[in-house]
């Protein structure tokens, strides 16, 4: 489990890896929140390309970040979820809170 943070102007990209469950979600949240607090992005991208497993603890992680960003007028996007991860996200209706790009962000802002 790890988080790699990349900052591109007003965009923060958090590359998540490993399993996301109740045991691993807390340190991941803390890393992401630290990056959000110090960079005040207009867009936070959570990249799931290297996430091998996720249960509903990952949904809590995404929803919690939305609750932090939304009052600041910032947006949230999710990229590259595997079919298993997308299935959990879809069940939770995450599409209503964050843009989900199965093939990565097309937005040039993240480049």
């Amino acid at each position: 489990m790890s988080v790699k943070i990349e900052v591109n102007g007003e965009v923060v990209v958090a590359y998540l890896s490993g399993d996301i469950d109740h045991h691993t979600a807390k340190p991941m949240r803390e890393e992401i929140d630290k990056a959000v607090e110090s960079n005040m992005p207009t867009l936070l991208v959570l990249d799931f390309k290297d996430v091998s497993f996720m249960d509903s603890s990952g949904i809590g992680l995404v929803m919690g970040r939305y609750r932090i960003l939304n009052p600041k007028g910032a947006e949230l996007a999710v990229t590259n979820p595997s079919p298993q991860i997308y299935k959990v996200m879809h069940l939770a209706g995450l599409e209503r809170l964050a843009k989900i790009e199965k093939g990565g962000m097309k937005n040039e802002a993240v480049k």
């Binding site: 807390k26 949240r29 509903s56 603890s57 949904i59 992680l61 929803m63 919690g64 069940l91 939770a92």
Partner: peptide, 15 residues
């Protein structure tokens, strides 16, 4: 509380 989604049983039921 805040960081739990409340979806545990919904996931079990659905999967």
């Amino acid at each position: 509380g805040g960081e739990r989604a409340g979806l545990g049983f919904a996931v079990m039921q659905s999967f």
